[in-house]
Nucleic acid binder design. Structure first.
Lengths: 220, 220
DNA sequence: GCTTCGCGTTAAGAAGGTGTGAAACGTAGA
DNA sequence: TCTACGTTTCACACCTTCTTAACGCGAAGC
């Protein structure tokens, strides 16, 4: 059975989440405040954390940062609208995904599934996401055993997205990985390369989804 | 000819093993560190791996675990006395056998034979891709039983490409194999030798295809 | 309804990689 | 020393890829 930790200051929200999660077979523990959340995480070792960004006292970002100092547990951010900048920060610190309040229960559970299925950076020469296979050693990419003809930049881009398949990758993260040591801002060109990549991927079960103002996500 | 990969941080040990193995007709490659060992294994696809348990950085057990995620290659563990528990762990993870340092050369070679016989048939000293046959033992290459007259560099180049026939080999990989221990960048000359090789291959069902910005691929 | 903002799409020039022939260089053997 | 052979270097034409700019579109906000 998976354990989930909810860190949120609103009692109603905690109750809602608890019901949802328990109906899915999770064992649930809660914290209404950041400091306590960290303690609970250390003690219970949850398999997934649901973290509210708008925490009083120790803020959500700070909690995430301290958590990441010693744990790789998947973290799902709960945020309200107009917290775009903060959401981006959270993803870059190491959050796995976010949902915006108010959210549908189906959406929440789906995202939970995805971030728990993820694996850390692979050390095999291949990354696989659904029908997509990225061979880092030979610089090859295949969909359902059919080779894709990619340019070096497109390959690097697809690699980053596939490594985090199902999760959002911020534009900053992408740019830093694909154009390392770049001074000027190539995020203009990013759109072009995303476009090319989408055309080459076609309609074969792999999509690149845009998250406006934040980044991109590869869906299998 | 069989390929062996040595992963050990002590240079003296590597040299000793290399001599032993080469005297037995093995082709040997080395790595002084775990991460590099995994890369070498992925690229060279050795027929047997000799793995030191006491590696700095990425430990021997960790290397073995990651190797076993994608490879069934026979692995012989090199351990020192008083590592009983670790040896057991290694065998459980998927090592095939172990020898304790210091070991006699006869014992090592015997164990190597055993664990290799356990796995399928021996490697042939030939690489074949379609109508192309590369005979490593006699340094000969044939297309449809017609011998090719190749220079040493051309032969080494064709060997690398044929070993990975159908897949992309990056320029870096080619250069490292054909011009080992070269400091200056011979990738200029690579183009020339590719050119020569293409001429000698002619139009007999074997093509060398360029992947711009990445490397080359041999197609049968 | 208008403006603003971010994204998708397209086109074209700039930048960089590749193929090819020839010349220069190094080396071993006669 | 000369010769033969293989390797490396160079120059240049050609092609692919990258970058930049412009424009259309839809969503969000005023």
């Amino acid at each position: 059975m998976s354990k989930a930790l909810i860190i949120d200051d609103e009692q109603q929200m905690r109750r809602l989440l608890r019901m949802l999660l328990e109906s899915r077979g999770y064992e649930v523990c809660e914290a209404d405040e950041g400091q306590r959340g960290l303690q609970e995480a250390a003690f219970h070792r949850p398999d997934v954390v649901l973290l509210d960004l708008g925490l009083p006292g120790l803020g959500g970002l700070e909690v995430l940062k301290r958590l990441r100092e010693w744990s790789d547990v998947p973290v799902l951010i709960l945020s309200v609208r107009d917290q775009e900048a903060t959401k981006v920060q959270a993803l870059e610190i190491g959050a796995d995904d976010y949902v915006t309040k108010p959210f549908g229960s189906a959406e929440l559970l789906a995202r939970l599934d995805v971030i728990q299925r993820r694996r850390g950076p692979r050390h095999t020469p291949e990354i696989i996401a659904g029908p997509l296979k990225v061979d880092l050693l030979h610089h090859e990419a295949q969909i359902a055993d059919e080779a894709l003809k990619l340019t070096p930049t497109e390959f690097a881009l697809l690699k980053v997205l596939t490594e985090h398949a199902g999760r959002i990758v911020t534009q900053n993260q992408i740019v830093k990985q694909v154009w390392p040591g770049q001074s000027s801002d190539p995020s203009e060109g990013l759109r072009v390369h995303i476009n090319h990549l989408r055309k080459k991927l076609g309609d074969r079960g792999i999509r690149i989804v845009n998250e406006p103002g934040i980044g991109y996500r590869l869906e299998a």
